[in-house]
């Protein structure tokens, strides 16, 4: 008997909060405006041409995937210490969104690399690290799904979430010791001054904000759905039915 039966309160399902709804609307508006800015306002890059526009989508997704995996780490750590399902929900939701973001960042990177580097893929440090990151968090979702019970799956996923996050700097440094051809960062503390036109920088920051709102919206939605799943599992257990082994 898993502990889910105890932890999931059997109460009428709470509708998704009003705040989440407004956040969704805001995400829609910002995304549409972002697309307009990226494709109709932003100037074409002097060297790379049209293909550079993918940067406004690729970089925010890569940045936010790091935020997602940091949230996985925090959620997993607190969950293992307190064993309260709310932190597991955060870790689970952040893992799923992080995997989606890394997948899209990899795919947009591949599309960009073909015309610019002449190859779809190259074993360059940042690409390699990102691919390994993807593998680690896919494994994290797999171990949750294949666990004998939901509560066991939560613990296993938390362990992988923590170990995987601790591994990231080592992975990065170990692959860094090869030669790098990834474009140097053009924004942030490592950037050279004037690497990006002011209008491009403004659009990039807008895009980052838009993606952040989408990210938060997805996160809150996924956590709410997970709460409903937990309640459904609790009802099933309480009514003497078979607990489904591991949520997908």
């Amino acid at each position: 008997m898993s502990s889910d039966a105890v932890t999931a309160r059997i109460s009428p399902a709470k509708p998704l909060g009003q705040t989440t709804r407004w956040l969704g609307l805001l995400a829609l508006v910002l995304t549409l405006a972002d697309l307009y800015l990226i494709f109709l306002v932003a100037p074409a890059d002097a060297v790379l041409g049209q293909v550079q526009r993918i940067f406004y989508i690729h970089v925010p997704m890569a940045v936010l995937s790091f935020l997602a995996f940091f949230l996985v780490f925090v959620g997993s750590l607190v969950f293992l210490m307190r064993r309260t399902p709310r932190w597991d929900r955060l870790a689970h939701a952040a893992t799923e969104i992080g995997v989606v973001l890394v997948t899209l960042a990899l795919l947009t990177g591949i599309i960009w690399a073909r015309p610019v580097w002449g190859v779809w893929w190259t074993w360059e440090p940042r690409l390699t690290t990102t691919l390994i990151l993807w593998l680690i968090y896919v494994a994290c979702l797999m171990v949750r799904a294949y666990a004998p019970s939901r509560s066991r799956g939560a613990v296993y996923a938390a362990v992988v979430g923590i170990i995987g996050f601790a591994d990231v700097p080592i992975v990065y440094y170990s692959v860094q010791w090869w030669r790098s051809i990834h474009p140097a960062p053009v924004v942030g503390p490592l950037a050279e001054a004037g690497a990006l036109e002011p209008i491009m920088l403004a659009i990039f920051l807008f895009s980052l904000a838009a993606f952040l709102v989408v990210f938060l919206y997805l996160l809150l939605q996924r956590i709410a759905v997970r709460r409903l799943e937990d309640q459904a599992a609790g009802v099933r257990l309480a009514s003497g039915g078979q607990a489904s082994p591991g949520a997908p």
């Binding site: 593998l135 680690i136 494994a139 797999m142 992988v160 591994d167 080592i170 440094y173 170990s174």
Partner: peptide, 9 residues
Amino acid sequence: VLFFPIILP
């Protein structure tokens, strides 16, 4: 699946 990505370094 769990082991190889993390052991890679």
